[in-house]
Design a binder for these strands. Structure first.
Length: 265
DNA sequence: TTCCAGGCGTATC
DNA sequence: GATACGCATGGA
């Protein structure tokens, strides 16, 4: 970890890291562009992060917090150069890595990731952000399962989340009651973890996979949304290469970003 | 107006 | 187990 202090902020020199590609690529929905960088949270710990000339500026944090919260969150202990070398053996992934080489998989909070991807179903990214924004504003923070569990479905109407409101409530209640233990699920074998997550109403294969990948750093989890289905049909009719499978989730993030931008242009 | 968005529950076979 | 359809909302 190559970092130093400057005017009370932490300056990080980091390869394979781009703020737009990491914070605005559809894996997290709570980061907001500021003039120079992004402002957001890990749970309720805030951060402003700015791209400097040859380093990233972590504002208003401490060395302790930087090393234990942000270095983990931004997956800085993982060598993405090495990952991209493995990915680049594959033609399509090689292009995806060249297209956006600064993507990193964020190690998000378990509940926030689960809740966010419950909201994501049959929805578009701007509207997902809007719902989560109203949620955080309404509760003053990203609400805990306990805070939501005490409510009625109609109390969530202000989110304008549509049919997803009852799913959020079911997830919150099951977690608050202890029936679902995300900490425990994060350590289960993948098939068992998937099965348990899918007992929540409104959590199917895709949302469960997202909860595992984005909230529990299960990098072999591979969410199949409409975009990745297009990628699979177009480039991976015979499945993804064996060397990629242990990191399929991270590869998926590169592919997701690539196919979406590719289609836009 | 119609279609679509990081899907899932339900009904039906 | 596979397939068809409705679902809330809002932008294109």
């Amino acid at each position: 970890m190559d970092y130093f202090f400057k005017n009370g902020d932490i300056c990080l020199k980091q390869e394979d890291f781009d703020l737009d590609e990491t914070l605005d690529c559809g894996q997290a929905f709570r980061w907001k562009k500021t003039g120079l960088g992004y402002y957001g949270f890990y749970i309720n710990t805030p951060l402003e992060i700015i791209r400097g000339h040859d380093y990233f500026l972590f504002k208003n944090t401490t060395e302790e917090e930087f090393l234990h919260v942000w270095a983990e969150y931004f997956d800085l202990y993982t060598d993405y150069g090495e990952l991209k070398r493995i990915f680049s053996e594959d033609e399509t992934l090689s292009k995806a890595c060249k297209f956006a080489g600064g993507i990193r998989l964020l190690k998000q909070d378990k509940w926030e990731a689960l809740c966010s991807f419950i909201i994501s179903q049959n929805n578009n990214i701007p509207r997902i952000k809007g719902i989560i924004d109203r949620m955080c504003n309404g509760f003053g923070e990203f609400p805990t399962p306990l805070a939501i569990s005490r409510l009625e479905v109609s109390d969530l109407d202000f989110l304008r989340a549509g049919f997803r409101g009852k799913y959020i409530l079911d997830g919150a209640k099951r977690i608050a009651s202890g029936e679902i233990d995300l900490e425990l699920i994060s350590k289960m074998e993948l098939p068992e973890a998937r099965k348990k997550l899918q007992t929540i109403v409104g959590v199917g294969p895709k949302v469960a996979e997202c909860a595992l990948l984005y909230g529990m750093y299960r990098v072999e989890a591979f969410p199949m949304d409409v975009w990745i289905k297009r990628v699979m049909e177009k480039y991976y009719k015979n499945g993804i290469p064996n060397d990629i499978i242990p990191y399929a989730g991270i590869a998926q993030q590169f592919l997701f970003h690539y196919i979406r931008k590719f289609v836009e242009n």
